[in-house]
Nucleic acid binder design. Structure first.
Lengths: 335, 335
DNA sequence: CGCTGGGCTTGCAACGTTGCAAGTGATGCT
DNA sequence: AGCATCACTTGCAACGTTGCAAGCCCAGCG
């Protein structure tokens, strides 16, 4: 069905090469010829065959974005930004979900036959750790997103999790809260996010001279609403429950919020709440959610730019870039 | 860097064709040869070049999912389902966002050079109407999602919007609500969703003998939280405000909920609320949201299956499939 | 011992595109 | 008139893969 260069050439009475020159806007084509070829192109509705092009010039024009879950708002918003950035550079993004499954992550990132299709990868690991990533056999360039799993050796866009968690916790301290809990700690070695945020949380408490109560640090398996709701139930069941909670992401906070409200308590009057990620849901909850806002556009921009540099043969040392963040104060911490 | 068939062949002392036979598990290869080739494959870490393969057999293995916004939860959840279904069939999904911009929709779906890259499209139109879609010049098969924009002639997966809206409204009637409002009407010809849901809403009111008050039907430009919040403000400002609201999607309902609560009113005591889509946010809001739940997995399954059939040369008449839905009753309508 | 057949392997060509270098014809200069 | 120059156009080859049909070699049979 689709017309080829050769067919257009025949119709216009020129060579395929000349048609190619017209299609690609090469200067060395006589105006008259160009017009004639253009007409043939239009008549046949010619569309360049992307696959053949890609084979010819050795690139597929495709980059893969590999992340845990697409329907988690933070990732959905990040994905939007990555797609936009990549499109601006003429690249197309394929999104792959791993559900945090190490087998799927390995398959997609390490050597999966899928990999041969992509010029590069942007990878937000959940289960895969340093050991895995270090001996990747595939030569496709990767940029990592998220906390630092690998010490050097790979391009990486991250946020200062410790600093951000400190900022969030200090905000609660400044509100004169005495029993500040944390939801989202993770002991699992491969999941650094939780560990780093706990580090920041503790550091803030310590420098404010607060008591450190291990029972106020609640681990969760995932970062979903359900985990936040369950952890909050546990906290409320304590003999001496918290008057403030720092949740390691907004979904946890929204789950916790639901539990608090259904216990007849008020936010922030009884319990103040801070989240992380600044997803849209938190801007419209009641009360709206105070949160750490990472600059998602900047993350996407850096990631795509870094990857494109590698594709252009940039051989410089692996980069580690930190994205900006700030604290957005909303109703959940404002009396 | 990546090894080619020829290189493997040289190393194993056979022809490229034989290596290809091994890679593709063809039966006609002597065990000894197979073993030797396999070893060479392993040693070189051979990965088939997807682009060359695709050129050879005329398919790219790529389907595009074109939708308005990826970071709207309904679409994110739908996208997850489509990716899973497509992956099961060996296809890779490229997600494209149009932001409801008719120019971008046209570019992507009608003839954009992007289109030549995809074997097929799954398209959820927002701005493009029947007139546009009917004279598509591209020969790439399309399956449409959403309300029926085109009368026949194209494959289509839809929900019975009128029936679902009737069900939602009847639920509010059964609660003895007297002044039932609707948020999300759309006059724009190309956006049928709003119109159809209004139709169902009105039909339910009519058959229950309820008064029809035009001032209780609020149009919105988009289906975002902000639109719901604004429309709800207007409704509350009426001399005779509603005691129940049917919102045409969950985001509108969450926005409306926020407005209601911030006015010191209670849900469902003062105002009962029903949404549409069953996004996860609505399951964790306070109160949780009664909503129409379309079977997203089924939608994705039908869409992918229908598209794959077309790719396999199925020439049967265009199909119009309706996905199932049901009413999920939660706190926003339970006293 | 020669011929047939089957098991296994191979070379060629093509998918649609573009880089390269060579080709064409007309123009201008000496 | 002859030659260099220029503007434009072309054919060839190759990207890595696989369908096709032909080829090779050995076993088995007459």
């Amino acid at each position: 069905m689709a017309a080829t260069l050769r067919e257009v050439a025949e119709r216009a009475g020129v060579s395929a090469r000349t048609v190619s020159n017209v299609v690609n806007d090469f200067p060395q084509v006589a105006p008259a010829t160009r017009a004639r070829v253009q007409q043939a192109l239009d008549e046949l509705g010619y569309q360049p065959n992307a696959v053949a092009r890609n084979l010819r010039n050795g690139r597929s024009g495709l980059i893969a974005l590999v992340l845990p879950e697409l329907d988690v708002p933070y990732f959905a918003e990040l994905t939007r930004a990555v797609i936009e950035q990549a499109a601006a550079a003429g690249y197309t993004v394929v999104v792959d979900q791993t559900d945090g499954d190490p087998v799927r992550e390995r398959e997609l990132v390490m050597r999966g036959n899928r990999a041969a299709m992509f010029d590069g990868l942007i990878f937000n690991p959940l289960a895969l750790g340093s050991a895995d990533l270090r001996n990747r056999s595939s030569s496709t360039p990767v940029v990592l997103l998220g906390e630092r799993v690998v010490q050097g050796g790979l391009d990486h866009i991250m946020i200062d999790n410790v600093g951000a968690a400190e900022l969030a916790t200090r905000h609660l301290i400044d509100l004169d809260r005495q029993r500040i809990a944390a939801i989202g700690d993770q002991s699992d070695e491969s999941r650094q996010t939780g560990r780093l945020r706990t580090e920041g949380y503790q550091s803030a408490l310590r420098s404010a001279g607060h008591e450190m109560r291990p029972d106020l640090i609640r681990p969760t398996e995932f970062f979903h609403r359900a985990d936040g709701a369950a952890a909050m139930s546990d906290l409320l069941a304590l003999p001496d429950p918290p008057d403030a909670v720092f949740c390691y992401n907004d979904l946890l906070a929204l789950g916790a919020l639901r539990t608090i409200l259904s216990h007849g308590l008020r936010v922030p009057d009884d319990i103040a709440l801070v989240g992380f990620d600044d997803i849209e849901d938190g801007r419209y909850s009641t009360p709206s959610l105070t949160t750490i806002r990472p600059d998602k556009t900047q993350i996407a921009k850096h990631a795509v730019q870094l990857l494109l540099n590698r594709l252009d043969g940039d051989k410089s040392a692996p980069a580690e870039l930190s994205a900006d963040y700030d604290l957005v104060i909303r109703e959940s911490t404002t009396l």
